[in-house]
Protein backbone atom coordinates (compact mmCIF):
# COMPACT_ATOMS: atom_id res chain seq x y z
CA UNK A 1 0.00 0.00 0.00
CA UNK A 2 2.82 2.36 0.91
CA UNK A 3 4.51 1.44 -2.30
CA UNK A 4 1.39 2.32 -4.21
CA UNK A 5 1.15 5.69 -2.48
CA UNK A 6 4.76 6.46 -3.33
CA UNK A 7 4.20 5.74 -6.99
CA UNK A 8 0.86 7.52 -6.99
CA UNK A 9 2.33 10.86 -5.90
CA UNK A 10 4.38 11.59 -9.04
CA UNK A 11 1.60 10.27 -11.22
CA UNK A 12 -0.97 12.42 -9.49
CA UNK A 13 1.39 15.34 -9.99
CA UNK A 14 1.73 14.59 -13.69
CA UNK A 15 -2.00 14.11 -14.03
CA UNK A 16 -2.94 17.31 -12.26
CA UNK A 17 -0.29 19.61 -13.65
CA UNK A 18 0.35 18.23 -17.10
CA UNK A 19 -2.31 15.92 -18.42
CA UNK A 20 -5.38 17.79 -17.18
CA UNK A 21 -4.21 21.21 -18.46
CA UNK A 22 -3.23 19.59 -21.72
CA UNK A 23 -6.66 17.99 -22.11
CA UNK A 24 -8.30 21.35 -21.42
CA UNK A 25 -6.14 23.03 -24.06
CA UNK A 26 -6.78 20.16 -26.45
CA UNK A 27 -10.51 20.44 -25.88
CA UNK A 28 -10.39 24.19 -26.63
CA UNK A 29 -8.44 23.48 -29.80
CA UNK A 30 -11.38 21.40 -31.01
CA UNK A 31 -13.89 24.15 -30.21
CA UNK A 32 -15.17 27.07 -32.26
CA UNK A 33 -14.56 30.76 -31.80
CA UNK A 34 -17.40 32.69 -30.12
CA UNK A 35 -17.87 36.21 -28.81
CA UNK A 36 -18.68 35.27 -25.27
CA UNK A 37 -17.16 34.52 -21.90
CA UNK A 38 -15.24 32.26 -22.39
CA UNK A 39 -14.69 33.08 -26.06
CA UNK A 40 -15.31 29.62 -27.51
CA UNK A 41 -18.08 27.09 -27.83
CA UNK A 42 -19.25 24.49 -26.90
CA UNK A 43 -18.87 24.48 -23.14
CA UNK A 44 -19.24 21.31 -21.19
CA UNK A 45 -22.30 21.47 -18.95
CA UNK A 46 -22.36 18.44 -16.69
CA UNK A 47 -25.91 19.14 -15.50
CA UNK A 48 -27.28 18.04 -18.86
CA UNK A 49 -26.12 14.50 -18.26
CA UNK A 50 -25.00 11.92 -20.80
CA UNK A 51 -27.04 13.34 -23.68
CA UNK A 52 -25.51 16.75 -23.06
CA UNK A 53 -22.05 15.24 -23.05
CA UNK A 54 -22.68 13.47 -26.36
CA UNK A 55 -23.98 16.68 -27.84
CA UNK A 56 -20.87 18.43 -26.55
CA UNK A 57 -18.60 15.86 -28.19
CA UNK A 58 -20.44 16.10 -31.47
CA UNK A 59 -19.64 19.82 -31.68
CA UNK A 60 -15.89 19.29 -31.45
CA UNK A 61 -13.89 19.02 -34.66
CA UNK A 62 -10.39 19.34 -36.06
CA UNK A 63 -11.19 22.42 -38.12
CA UNK A 64 -8.57 24.53 -36.35
CA UNK A 65 -5.81 22.04 -37.09
CA UNK A 66 -6.80 22.04 -40.73
CA UNK A 67 -6.65 25.82 -40.62
CA UNK A 68 -3.04 25.63 -39.44
CA UNK A 69 -2.11 23.75 -42.59
CA UNK A 70 -3.79 26.26 -44.84
CA UNK A 71 -1.70 29.28 -43.93
CA UNK A 72 2.05 29.12 -44.48
CA UNK A 73 2.50 31.46 -41.50
CA UNK A 74 2.30 28.61 -39.03
CA UNK A 75 4.74 26.13 -40.47
CA UNK A 76 7.09 28.98 -41.30
CA UNK A 77 6.90 30.11 -37.69
CA UNK A 78 7.53 26.59 -36.40
CA UNK A 79 10.42 26.25 -38.79
CA UNK A 80 11.85 29.64 -37.96
CA UNK A 81 11.57 28.86 -34.23
CA UNK A 82 13.36 25.56 -34.78
CA UNK A 83 16.08 27.37 -36.71
CA UNK A 84 16.52 30.05 -34.05
CA UNK A 85 16.50 27.38 -31.33
CA UNK A 86 19.07 25.28 -33.22
CA UNK A 87 21.42 28.20 -33.88
CA UNK A 88 21.06 29.36 -30.28
CA UNK A 89 21.87 25.87 -29.05
CA UNK A 90 25.03 25.74 -31.14
CA UNK A 91 26.07 29.20 -29.98
CA UNK A 92 25.42 28.18 -26.40
CA UNK A 93 27.67 25.14 -26.83
CA UNK A 94 30.41 27.32 -28.32
CA UNK A 95 30.23 29.75 -25.40
CA UNK A 96 29.37 27.24 -22.67
CA UNK A 97 31.88 24.47 -23.35
CA UNK A 98 35.03 26.50 -22.69
CA UNK A 99 33.47 27.93 -19.53
CA UNK A 100 32.51 24.46 -18.27
CA UNK A 101 35.96 23.18 -19.23
CA UNK A 102 37.67 26.00 -17.37
CA UNK A 103 35.52 25.33 -14.31
CA UNK A 104 36.20 21.60 -14.33
CA UNK A 105 39.94 22.22 -14.64
CA UNK A 106 40.03 24.93 -11.99
CA UNK A 107 41.52 24.11 -8.58
CA UNK A 108 39.02 22.15 -6.56
CA UNK A 109 38.60 24.83 -3.89
CA UNK A 110 37.44 27.35 -6.52
CA UNK A 111 34.87 25.15 -8.17
CA UNK A 112 32.06 25.73 -5.69
CA UNK A 113 32.50 29.48 -6.11
CA UNK A 114 32.57 29.22 -9.90
CA UNK A 115 29.42 27.10 -9.87
CA UNK A 116 27.79 29.69 -7.66
CA UNK A 117 28.74 32.42 -10.12
CA UNK A 118 27.10 30.50 -12.95
CA UNK A 119 23.90 30.08 -10.97
CA UNK A 120 23.99 33.59 -9.48
CA UNK A 121 22.04 35.32 -12.32
CA UNK A 122 19.03 33.16 -11.41
CA UNK A 123 18.75 35.16 -8.22
CA UNK A 124 17.61 38.12 -10.28
CA UNK A 125 14.33 38.11 -12.12
CA UNK A 126 14.64 36.81 -15.64
CA UNK A 127 12.65 39.79 -16.96
CA UNK A 128 14.95 42.31 -15.34
CA UNK A 129 17.97 40.59 -16.83
CA UNK A 130 16.47 40.64 -20.30
CA UNK A 131 15.45 44.27 -19.83
CA UNK A 132 18.97 45.20 -18.92
CA UNK A 133 20.10 43.83 -22.26
CA UNK A 134 17.80 46.37 -23.90
CA UNK A 135 19.76 49.06 -22.08
CA UNK A 136 23.05 47.54 -23.21
CA UNK A 137 22.18 46.87 -26.84
CA UNK A 138 20.06 49.89 -27.79
CA UNK A 139 21.44 52.47 -30.18
CA UNK A 140 22.18 54.85 -27.32
CA UNK A 141 23.06 51.91 -25.08
CA UNK A 142 26.19 51.09 -23.13
CA UNK A 143 27.67 48.83 -25.78
CA UNK A 144 27.45 51.43 -28.53
CA UNK A 145 28.63 54.18 -26.21
CA UNK A 146 31.61 52.08 -25.23
CA UNK A 147 32.52 51.04 -28.77
CA UNK A 148 32.19 54.60 -30.00
CA UNK A 149 34.22 56.01 -27.12
CA UNK A 150 37.14 53.70 -27.87
CA UNK A 151 36.78 54.50 -31.55
CA UNK A 152 35.98 51.04 -32.90
CA UNK A 153 32.86 52.32 -34.62
CA UNK A 154 31.72 55.79 -35.64
CA UNK A 155 28.03 55.01 -36.17
CA UNK A 156 26.01 53.17 -33.53
CA UNK A 157 25.40 49.50 -34.36
CA UNK A 158 21.78 48.48 -34.67
CA UNK A 159 21.59 45.35 -32.54
CA UNK A 160 18.44 45.73 -30.49
CA UNK A 161 15.30 44.59 -32.27
CA UNK A 162 17.24 42.27 -34.55
CA UNK A 163 17.81 38.52 -34.47
CA UNK A 164 21.33 39.16 -33.19
CA UNK A 165 19.85 40.60 -30.01
CA UNK A 166 17.58 37.56 -29.74
CA UNK A 167 20.58 35.24 -29.99
CA UNK A 168 22.45 37.25 -27.41
CA UNK A 169 19.46 37.14 -25.09
CA UNK A 170 18.91 33.41 -25.52
CA UNK A 171 22.56 32.48 -25.16
CA UNK A 172 22.83 34.67 -22.08
CA UNK A 173 19.68 33.30 -20.47
CA UNK A 174 20.17 29.62 -21.21
CA UNK A 175 23.94 29.44 -20.77
CA UNK A 176 23.78 27.91 -17.27
CA UNK A 177 21.60 25.10 -18.62
CA UNK A 178 24.42 24.27 -21.02
CA UNK A 179 27.32 24.83 -18.65
CA UNK A 180 26.02 22.73 -15.77
CA UNK A 181 25.58 19.37 -17.56
CA UNK A 182 28.85 19.78 -19.47
CA UNK A 183 30.59 20.69 -16.25
CA UNK A 184 29.11 17.63 -14.56
CA UNK A 185 30.44 15.43 -17.39
CA UNK A 186 33.88 17.06 -17.43
CA UNK A 187 34.26 17.00 -13.69
CA UNK A 188 33.69 13.24 -13.66
CA UNK A 189 36.39 12.89 -16.29
CA UNK A 190 39.36 11.12 -14.71
CA UNK A 191 42.54 13.14 -15.22
CA UNK A 192 44.45 9.89 -15.65
CA UNK A 193 42.53 9.23 -18.89
CA UNK A 194 44.20 12.27 -20.41
CA UNK A 195 47.57 11.20 -19.05
CA UNK A 196 46.99 7.75 -20.49
CA UNK A 197 46.20 9.26 -23.87
CA UNK A 198 49.37 11.35 -23.74
CA UNK A 199 51.32 8.35 -22.59
CA UNK A 200 50.06 6.47 -25.65
CA UNK A 201 51.24 9.18 -28.03
CA UNK A 202 48.60 11.92 -28.08
CA UNK A 203 49.46 15.56 -27.99
CA UNK A 204 47.46 17.66 -25.51
CA UNK A 205 45.24 18.83 -28.36
CA UNK A 206 44.50 15.41 -29.77
CA UNK A 207 43.88 14.04 -26.27
CA UNK A 208 41.24 16.77 -25.92
CA UNK A 209 39.52 15.77 -29.16
CA UNK A 210 39.85 12.02 -28.69
CA UNK A 211 39.06 11.78 -24.97
CA UNK A 212 37.60 14.94 -23.45
CA UNK A 213 35.15 15.71 -26.24
CA UNK A 214 33.67 12.21 -26.64
CA UNK A 215 33.39 11.80 -22.88
CA UNK A 216 31.57 15.11 -22.45
CA UNK A 217 29.21 14.25 -25.29
CA UNK A 218 26.44 13.20 -22.91
CA UNK A 219 26.70 16.52 -21.10
CA UNK A 220 26.61 18.43 -24.38
CA UNK A 221 23.57 16.47 -25.52
CA UNK A 222 21.77 17.00 -22.21
CA UNK A 223 22.61 20.71 -22.29
CA UNK A 224 21.47 21.01 -25.90
CA UNK A 225 18.06 19.62 -25.05
CA UNK A 226 17.78 21.85 -22.01
CA UNK A 227 18.45 24.85 -24.26
CA UNK A 228 16.66 23.76 -27.41
CA UNK A 229 13.35 22.71 -25.88
CA UNK A 230 12.50 25.92 -24.01
CA UNK A 231 13.98 28.12 -26.75
CA UNK A 232 11.66 26.61 -29.33
CA UNK A 233 8.63 28.02 -27.55
CA UNK A 234 10.39 31.14 -26.27
CA UNK A 235 8.26 34.26 -26.25
CA UNK A 236 9.70 36.80 -23.85
CA UNK A 237 13.18 37.16 -25.33
CA UNK A 238 12.12 37.60 -28.98
CA UNK A 239 9.34 40.01 -28.02
CA UNK A 240 11.64 42.16 -25.89
CA UNK A 241 14.89 42.00 -27.84
CA UNK A 242 13.71 40.93 -31.26
CA UNK A 243 12.37 43.05 -34.05
CA UNK A 244 9.17 42.63 -35.97
CA UNK A 245 10.99 40.33 -38.36
CA UNK A 246 11.81 37.83 -35.64
CA UNK A 247 9.21 35.20 -36.33
CA UNK A 248 8.78 32.66 -33.58
CA UNK A 249 5.91 30.39 -32.78
CA UNK A 250 5.65 31.86 -29.29
CA UNK A 251 4.81 35.24 -30.79
CA UNK A 252 2.33 33.70 -33.24
CA UNK A 253 0.67 31.97 -30.32
CA UNK A 254 0.48 35.28 -28.47
CA UNK A 255 -1.08 36.96 -31.45
CA UNK A 256 -3.67 34.24 -31.94
CA UNK A 257 -4.57 34.52 -28.31
CA UNK A 258 -4.46 38.27 -27.79
CA UNK A 259 -4.92 39.94 -31.16
CA UNK A 260 -7.27 37.51 -32.85
CA UNK A 261 -8.81 36.50 -29.53
CA UNK A 262 -9.06 33.12 -31.20
CA UNK A 263 -8.52 30.77 -28.32
CA UNK A 264 -9.34 27.63 -30.32
CA UNK A 265 -6.68 28.33 -32.97
CA UNK A 266 -4.21 29.46 -30.30
CA UNK A 267 -4.82 26.16 -28.52
CA UNK A 268 -4.29 24.24 -31.74
CA UNK A 269 -0.96 26.04 -32.22
CA UNK A 270 -0.02 25.12 -28.66
CA UNK A 271 -1.01 21.48 -29.11
CA UNK A 272 1.10 21.21 -32.27
CA UNK A 273 4.01 22.91 -30.51
CA UNK A 274 3.76 20.38 -27.72
CA UNK A 275 3.73 17.52 -30.20
CA UNK A 276 6.83 18.96 -31.85
CA UNK A 277 8.50 19.31 -28.45
CA UNK A 278 7.64 15.77 -27.46
CA UNK A 279 10.03 14.42 -30.11
CA UNK A 280 13.17 16.01 -28.64
CA UNK A 281 11.91 15.27 -25.14
CA UNK A 282 11.62 11.56 -25.98
CA UNK A 283 15.06 11.66 -27.58
CA UNK A 284 16.36 13.32 -24.44
CA UNK A 285 14.86 10.62 -22.24
CA UNK A 286 16.37 7.91 -24.43
CA UNK A 287 19.75 9.57 -24.22
CA UNK A 288 19.51 9.78 -20.43
CA UNK A 289 18.58 6.14 -20.23
CA UNK A 290 21.41 5.14 -22.50
CA UNK A 291 23.78 7.05 -20.31
CA UNK A 292 22.48 5.36 -17.16
CA UNK A 293 22.94 1.98 -18.80
CA UNK A 294 26.41 2.90 -19.95
CA UNK A 295 27.36 3.83 -16.42
CA UNK A 296 26.00 0.46 -15.31
Amino acid sequence: MRRFTLIAIPYAWLLALFLVPFLIVFKISLSDLAMAIPPYTPNLDLSTGWAGFKDFLSQLDFENFIWLTQDDLYWKAYLSSAKIAAISTILTIIVGFPIAYGMARAPEEWRATLLMLVILPFWTSFLIRVYSWMGILSQEGYLNQFLMSIGVISEPLIILNTNIAVYIGIVYTYLPFMILPIYAALEKLDESLLEAAEDLGCSRMSAFWLITVPLSKQGVIAGSFLVFIPTLGEFVIPSLLGGSKTLMIGKVLWEEFFSNRDWPVASAVAVVLLLILIIPIILFQRNEQKQREAEG
Binding site: L33, M35, D71, D72, L73, K76, A77, S244, K245, T246, L247, V252, E255, S259, N260, R261, D262
Partner: peptide, 19 residues
Amino acid sequence: PPKTQRIVTRMWTKIKSGI
Protein backbone atom coordinates in the same frame (compact mmCIF):
# COMPACT_ATOMS: atom_id res chain seq x y z
CA PRO B 1 -16.22 41.06 -37.20
CA PRO B 2 -14.20 37.94 -36.21
CA LYS B 3 -13.58 36.74 -39.80
CA THR B 4 -12.33 40.15 -40.88
CA GLN B 5 -10.35 40.45 -37.66
CA ARG B 6 -8.48 37.25 -38.52
CA ILE B 7 -7.67 38.55 -42.01
CA VAL B 8 -6.49 41.83 -40.54
CA THR B 9 -4.31 40.13 -37.94
CA ARG B 10 -2.82 37.81 -40.53
CA MET B 11 -2.11 40.77 -42.77
CA TRP B 12 -0.58 42.59 -39.83
CA THR B 13 1.72 39.65 -39.06
CA LYS B 14 2.71 39.53 -42.70
CA ILE B 15 3.43 43.25 -42.76
CA LYS B 16 5.52 43.04 -39.60
CA SER B 17 7.48 39.91 -40.32
CA GLY B 18 7.36 39.68 -44.10
CA ILE B 19 5.72 36.25 -43.95
